[in-house]
Write a protein that binds this DNA or RNA. Sequence first.
DNA 1: ATCACAGTTGAACAGTTGTGCAAGTGTTCC
DNA 2: GGAACACTTGCACAACTGTTCAACTGTGAT
Lengths: 131, 131
Amino acid sequence: MTKAIDPSCAPQDHLSRQRAALVQPGAIERAAGIFRAMGDGPRLRLLTLLGQGEACVTEMATAEGEDLSTISQRLRVLRNEGLVSRRRNGKHILYGLADQHVADLLFNALAHASEGRPDLSRFRSLTITKE
Amino acid sequence: MTKAIDPSCAPQDHLSRQRAALVQPGAIERAAGIFRAMGDGPRLRLLTLLGQGEACVTEMATAEGEDLSTISQRLRVLRNEGLVSRRRNGKHILYGLADQHVADLLFNALAHASEGRPDLSRFRSLTITKE
DNA sequence: ATCACAGTTGAACAGTTGTGCAAGTGTTCC
DNA sequence: GGAACACTTGCACAACTGTTCAACTGTGAT
């Protein structure tokens, strides 16, 4: 194991000291958890679905052409990271995006992924005007 | 396999039709790839490091107390998703955040993860004023 | 040209994660 | 109460991912 010693590529290493002051240790791990939950195609599709408004599990299952159980499992991951809200409405359970931060994250990534003409203006307005 | 049929929890399913019009199919997969790359503690630490300015691999290795090879492998994942820039400077190779979108994503997630008093104002200004 | 330095890459192994199935809640309606 | 509906959860298995080590590439100095 060849550990690295003495960079010498920068005047002084401003890195390790400053970073510690900027973000508290736990924040990075939690942020990583959020990204990990969003870092899956099927799960991200669910989030974009919810970006257009609340939906029940059955509704999402039909939209995705998937088993109810599968959707529920995906939602569990998103719930564990606090990305979605959940409320019961009679027989159904309605899911939605947890807050504006999540909608922003979603919008930002889609914009970056679309690179150019995403035509997400309608999507953004839909999610922003939600609360 | 119990496929779901007929939601009946919403007036009509506005979901599948609208979503297709909003984001092109490939965008979600690419966005998921971005999130997946950021969804790892060690890799995300690297990005926050780069959020404070460019750094060479050795510098990051010392800051993280890791092997050079390990850091390089992590950077490869970030590079494959277009999250970091790379340029040679003599013996060293300097990495940086690819663009403002990445910095925004990073900032947003850290803000959401810190929930309250992140004190990220300095971080944001550092990354925003970069170009 | 040779040596040291800086970084990359491929392969193998261990740990993690997504999915499908079966069995389990909780709610509404009769 | 009981049946039907709308989910949820635990488990097992396959597929993926991160790390490590060794070998390799490219740059700068002697």
